[in-house]
Simulated scan of single mutants.
Amino acid sequence: MGNAAHKNYDVVIIGGAIYGSSVAWWLTQMQGFDGRILVVERDPTYEFASTSHTNSCIRQQFSNRLNIQISRFGAEFIKGFRGFMGDDPEVPELVLQSYGYLYLADTPEFAQTLRESQAIQAAEGAHTRHMTPAEIAAEYPFYQLDDVLAANHNLVDEGYFDGGTMFDWFKRMARRNGVEYIHDEVTGMTLNAAGTGVDSVTLKSGDTISCGSVVNASGPRAVATAQMAGIDLPVRPRKRYTFIFDAANPLDRDLPLTIDPSGVHMRSEGKYYLAGCPPDEDPDVAPDDFGFDHSLWQEKVWPIIATRVPAFEQVKVINEWVGHYAYNTFDQNAVIGRHTKVSNFVFANGFSGHGLQQSPAMGRGIAEQIAHGEYRSLDLAPFGYDRIENQQKFMEKAVI
């Protein structure tokens, strides 16, 4: 473990994966902000971080306008990545492979929800189409659609990108711009006498670091970090399974990221295919529990994908892993910004599977809040902690 270079920092960020590094980098882009920034990361290999287990996709297909606006900026950021990184020739161009998400509806109610969501997405500039089964079959003849009534699909700014490279450059450029990263772990916090602010954090190495603001970017460990400040946060680790498989009879075109009504999703992955799902029983788990349910493929995933795409009758799993969603049990959407009482405690939590794709806009917003005391690009106030206290859910129908 390395010691911090100083005893006090303007911003201490707990967790250095996609959110810790996005917020850190964005802070270095805030005009007039020249504060000292420390990122504390417990595992600099990031082997078990949610960022390392992501499927690296982005979609415009949300039902809430703000989530759509966040994704619109995410796509702009990905496509203009080198420019955002100062046109540094070392920075790679990121490619957004827009094969799109295809939501399949098997009930009149879900078909109506898709129709309403498509209208909202179109009003925000997204290119989502509402499709009939005949239209789906004409473009993707490999699906079995007997139970399908309608679908939504979008071939613009929706699909796969290299999230690992985006994370790597957030981290590299943050460091290059003066952000300090240390291998250590925050084990406690000291609040002021009134309980309205965090004065300092205590590290596993024994150091005590004074802080102007502290950012909870702890992913699935966010609840433990919040508890150190006496804050209750409804974010829990939940397992999500991913399978990479080879097909004996590969499809003759890209497989969109298909969301089956069962909740299983699948898509092209280079010359292979990817499928994933939550388990049928979806309990909270320990943040270090990566035990794998090997029955899930045989009993749930494979029967569903082989029914939906008969060409997938003959497939072979070549890789599989389990990662964690930082799952907001309250409303499955992010919690960001300052706490209502502990005013220098800043959330970057609970993304419930949307985290990587939302990290450009959310990281920028959190940095604006810290540097300027307000959101200046997108008004992200609806994601504030106050909605949890007031029991007012952020409404989003399109949660995978």
Rank of each mutant, 00 (worst) to 15 (best):
D88A: 14
Y99A: 04
G86P: 07
R82Y: 11
G74V: 02
E76A: 08
E90Q: 11
F84Y: 15
P89I: 11
R72Q: 14
I70K: 03
I78N: 10
P108F: 06
F73A: 03
V91H: 05
D87A: 14
E76F: 06
D87W: 08
G100N: 08
D106M: 13
I68T: 08
I70G: 01
A111V: 06
E76Y: 06
Q112W: 05
Q97M: 01
A75E: 00
S71M: 15
D88M: 15
A105R: 07
F84T: 09
M85K: 14
D88I: 13
Q112E: 15
M85E: 08
P92F: 01
I78H: 06
N67F: 03
S71C: 15
L104V: 01
F84L: 15
I68D: 00
Q97W: 03
F81H: 12
L102T: 02
S71R: 11
F84P: 12
F84S: 04
L102G: 02
G83W: 00
Y101L: 03
L104E: 01
A75S: 14
L94F: 09
V95I: 08
A105E: 01
V91L: 07
Y99H: 11
T113S: 08
R72N: 14
A111N: 06
E109H: 08
A111K: 01
L102W: 00
G100R: 00
S98V: 00
G74A: 13
R82A: 13
F81G: 05
P92D: 07
L114M: 14
F77L: 06
R82F: 07
G80N: 15
D106A: 12
A111Q: 03
Y101H: 08
R115H: 14
I70F: 03
S98Q: 02
G100D: 01
K79V: 11
E76V: 04
D106S: 14
F81T: 11
F110G: 00
F81Y: 15
I68L: 09
N67K: 08
F84V: 11
R82N: 12
G80A: 15
S71Q: 11
T113E: 10
R72H: 12
E90W: 05
P89M: 08
A111M: 06
Q69H: 12
F84D: 06
S71L: 09
G74D: 09
R115C: 05
G86Q: 09
I68P: 00
A111S: 12
I70V: 14
F81P: 10
L96T: 01
F73W: 12
E90T: 05
R82V: 08
E90S: 09
L114R: 00
Q97D: 11
I78R: 00
D88F: 10
G86Y: 08
D87L: 05
P108R: 13
L104Y: 00
L114Q: 11
V91D: 03
L96A: 04
A111H: 03
S98H: 03
I68E: 04
N67V: 08
Q97N: 12
N67P: 02
F77P: 02
Q69D: 13
F77V: 07
L104C: 02
Q97L: 02
L104F: 05
T107A: 12
A105K: 04
E90M: 09
T107Q: 10
Y99P: 00
Q97Y: 05
G74W: 09
V95R: 10
G83K: 06
A105M: 03
S71V: 04
L104Q: 07
L104W: 06
G86T: 09
Y99L: 05
I78Y: 07
E90H: 06
E90R: 10
I78W: 07
